[in-house]
Amino acid sequence: MRQAAPVLELASARADALRDELNPITISRVAIGCVYIDRLASCREALDRVIEDGRAGGAVGLGISAMVSNSVDNWHTGRWVEADRLAAEGIALCERYNYPRYSYILRYFRCLVAAAGGEVEDTLATVDAMTRWSTPRGAGITVQFAHHVRALVHAGSGDHERAYQEATAISPAGTLAPFRPHALWVLIDVVEAALHSGRTAEARAHVAAMRRERIDRLSSRLALVSAGCAAMVADDDEATAFYQQALAVPEAEHWPFDRARIQLAYGEHLRRVRRPAAARPYLREALEAFERLGARPWARRAVAGLRAGGTTASSAEPVMAVLGAQELEIARLAASGLTNRQIGERLNMSHRTVGAYLYRLFPKLGVTTRAALRDRLDELMPRDQGPDSPAETVT
């Protein structure tokens, strides 16, 4: 990890220069170099050009590779509906042009979104298939992807022992193993699972490894995660300073799932040290982020934290319990006044598919019209209530 620091300035410059780059091979290679240092945002415009060329029958393989890179950025920056849609499109191209390895890599991103949304059975079946395909072919990175997805599934379901085993299969607690850059994507998973399974020493060793490798210098995401994990393992009288440091990282909001997980941990810490009023805004902001993402298990955990602190949580819990991320996005767009065709253009699906989604989700929410849908979402998912609003009365 330390060897990456000296080339960060060069990598950023090369990524910025892609705006004028026409060679798809150069674009693809620079983007791949930006994956684990979180510089893909600067590559997106160029990657989109490569994707369009692949869609048109040009450099299909490079187009699929560009879809993988954009899927990475979609996952980390919370564009999960887009991540799922783009990965599905890429899988179809892989099957058409016989790119099985890319097909399994793209399935990984669909599985991440599904796992974070609490979809367990089908997700585990898919990653088991990934492992069966990857292991005999020596595709080690795909096996690591499967461990990541399983860790997320088990973390969401509260099985911290299994989450720990899966996350540390990528890199053991207390180490950031050489040639395992994917360890940078499961830092919170290792630390949280270690703490919740009674492995405080292992959690602290993992934070020490982050400090030793100075991963906070690599990107704002890793600065956020490094400080947040340090807060999780700190003594009660030191934790607040670390949490505040994490949430003050510039561009922290660019990484909504990581940030919300740290806000959730902070709120739970404040509640644990008997500061429920101070915990409330962090738990509520985390809840709102999880709702937007469609991260239902974490949304339920935030709701539980609010209730345990004596607050009646006016939240989207009923919505999150019955709607998936795609359904929720379509419901919001429909409630905003967009037509089925306009929604389809925005989400790259047919207006008939949008209509089918709405046909299924209306009865789930107990409504029959778009006006009623808007009112129902406003009722269940208020956005403008402050911490002392009437909906948050202490019981």
Rank of each mutant, 00 (worst) to 15 (best):
C229A: 10
T353S: 15
I170M: 11
A183M: 08
A208P: 02
W255Y: 15
N348L: 15
H254V: 15
V127C: 10
Y97V: 05
S28D: 03
A205K: 00
T369I: 09
R271H: 13
F257E: 01
G61Y: 10
A193M: 10
E45M: 12
P390S: 11
A193P: 02
E268G: 05
V225F: 04
A201D: 01
L195K: 10
P250N: 07
A227C: 06
E268L: 14
Y164N: 06
S220K: 14
D128N: 13
V149S: 03
P178A: 14
S389V: 04
A231M: 12
D236Y: 14
T312Y: 11
L218S: 00
E121C: 12
A205S: 03
I188A: 05
C229P: 00
V249M: 10
Q263P: 01
L306G: 04
N23R: 10
R292S: 05
A321V: 06
W185D: 03
F145N: 08
L187N: 00
R199Q: 11
T312Q: 13
R96Q: 11
E89P: 06
S197A: 11
Y36G: 04
G33T: 00
S197Q: 07
A325L: 09
I215A: 03
A308K: 08
A201P: 01
A302W: 08
Y282E: 07
R162K: 15
A167K: 01
T142C: 12
T368P: 07
E202S: 03
R214G: 02
A115N: 01
T131F: 15
I188M: 09
S315T: 05
D128Y: 13
L283T: 01
Q244R: 15
Q165N: 10
A209R: 05
S389Q: 10
Y359G: 13
I64S: 01
R2Y: 12
R29C: 10
S65L: 04
A248G: 08
L377H: 04
H206I: 12
R49G: 02
L8R: 02
T175R: 13
D235I: 14
M67I: 08
A115I: 03
Y97L: 13
R44S: 07
R132T: 07
R19A: 09
W80L: 15
A252H: 04
R374M: 08
Y243P: 03
P256W: 07
D235R: 15
L361M: 07
A116D: 03
S71L: 13
R261H: 12
P136T: 09
G54Y: 04
P178L: 15
Q244K: 14
E121G: 10
L373M: 11
A201S: 02
G78T: 01
P256L: 14
G78W: 03
T312I: 14
N70T: 06
L373F: 10
Q3N: 11
L247K: 04
A177Y: 02
E268S: 10
L323R: 04
L323D: 01
T142N: 06
G158P: 05
T123E: 11
L112T: 02
A209C: 07
L187Q: 04
G337F: 15
A316T: 00
E392C: 09
A13V: 04
V319P: 01
V394L: 11
A295Y: 00
L287C: 06
Q244V: 14
